[in-house]
Design a protein around this nucleic acid. Structure first.
Lengths: 156, 156
DNA sequence: AAAATAAAGTCAACATGATTGACCAAATAA
DNA sequence: TTATTTGGTCAATCATGTTGACTTTATTTT
């Protein structure tokens, strides 16, 4: 098979693959230092941006099983990074918040990603950045969960 | 902790997360139908674009252990998708190529990703697309393997 | 008040994919 | 001849995810 496999968009596939790997590498390294995984980061991010979410809401947004969420969430609570409060009338539901330390870790993790993007945007210039946002909005819109409901949250 | 965690770049983090998930979803589904994994795809892509690569070269580019490569590569050979030829003077090295069927599968997998990007680019317009390429080139350039050598290949 | 349901948490079994370590065989280089 | 390199393999282990079953507590339904 000496078929020439070649397409102008192949370069785009490669840029996405490598760009995403670069994007996640630093946060992954920070997490690894603490013995945490990406799920921990996703939890921190989601709880930070949607404070007072319930465990059930977390489950829906992160699209993982209850069992897969449980252990990391417990880790974060025991590490004092996340607080689970029973605040409403319904005493079954826990509303989750970041502690000060949890917010600091979330910030450190996401900052490593924001810093990378900020540098990239600065290098590419404002016009390129504007184009990037447009294209990525289209691409992200194609991320529709199997059950049909669109997502609004990020994780990695 | 009721700290407002909020940053204009947060939206960019979410777009990248969801955009990448959308980008990989279709190919992952195609792979799953055939009982294949992303590593199989990475192998098919790399061998398709760098025909006559050796197993050692594959190892370097995919950044996986020899043991992690071995089983998927054997799968692909036994499925008749990849051929391993002993062509050079050195009879230890195998040079890898796609068979006709392998090239077809590679094309189907990557087409699902190219089609998505083509649609996204069409929707966003040429100016936005140009900006996207610039930004992603900067971002991908930040993907430097631990050993320092820059990568030129994609995988997912 | 009793029964059904819902939210959270947990245990066990299992599947996948990756890692490292220890090797083997064949071919080549020293 | 010996050492090294390339490719391949087995085993043990780890990480992460899944599903199923089940408990506890609290809230609805009936």
């Amino acid at each position: 098979m000496i078929d020439q496999i070649n397409h102008p968009l192949d370069r785009a596939l490669e840029l996405l693959f490598h760009g995403y790997r670069a994007f996640t590498a630093k946060a992954d390294a920070l997490l690894a230092e603490r013995g945490l995984s990406r799920v921990h980061h996703r939890i921190l991010y989601f709880v930070g941006h949607q404070p007072d979410s319930t465990v059930g809401e977390l489950l829906l947004r992160l699209r993982v099983s209850k069992q897969a969420l449980n252990a990391p969430l417990r880790d974060l609570q025991q590490a004092g990074l996340i607080e689970a409060l029973i605040c409403g009338q319904d005493k079954r539901v826990r509303r989750l918040r970041l502690s000060t330390a949890g917010a600091a870790l979330e910030r450190a993790l996401s900052d490593s990603q924001r810093d990378l993007l900020a540098g990239v945007f600065a290098a590419a210039g404002p016009a390129a950045e504007a184009g990037w946002w447009q294209v990525m909005a289209e691409l992200a819109a194609a991320d529709v969960p199997p059950d049909g409901k669109a997502t609004q949250v990020k994780t990695a």
